[in-house]
Amino acid sequence: MGVRTDQKAATREKVLEAARDLFNEVGYEETTIRAIAERAGVSVGSVFTTFASKAEVLSHVMSHRLTALYAELDRVTPFLRGSTADKLCSIFAIHYEFECRRVKLFLAHIAASYNPANDPGVTPYGRNPRLNQMLLDVLEEGVRKGDVRSDLDLPLVVDTLKAAYAWNYRMTAAAGGDLEAAQMSAAMDRQISIIAEGWKPR
């Protein structure tokens, strides 16, 4: 890599880190591109040569984080034991644990996905295929093992689980971001068990 590309990558890294912290500490709407540049120690212009908009910065901050989350999950999932419901509970618990480390950032990400001005450089919350696939894999394994009814519409179940998962973050939003991840996992566990009640083979 040339010096120029090196420099560009370093700027990018610094900007993403500064933005991540500011969005979480100060809030997404409250943070300006200028504040991000200042915290990152780069010029405002160089932020704009790397990202088209603040929404794009947020999008990249989040996908950057997801890489770390899924590395963690890839390591852990092969070792998950217990029923299909147990495994799903663990996967969601890991998600809650992870997002609660910077929960205001995550809430901003969900909020931004409803904002009218979404540009094409942005991958909004909820459009990440990894979680979908992971949940489908677990359910399919459950079907193979006879733990889950075989006539179930699995993508529909995934859809329902994801809705419950996302909306449990309302609990922490309502508490101003001050809530233990365990409280959301506990709610999710109950929701999973109620849905699991319906997928038992009969």
Partner: peptide
């Protein structure tokens, strides 16, 4: 709990209308 999950899916579905 049933009411909560029903509400969750109801609201989550708006994303289908939006996107």
């Amino acid at each position: 709990l049933l009411a909560e999950i029903s509400w969750d899916v109801y609201v989550a579905n708006y994303r289908r209308a939006v996107y």
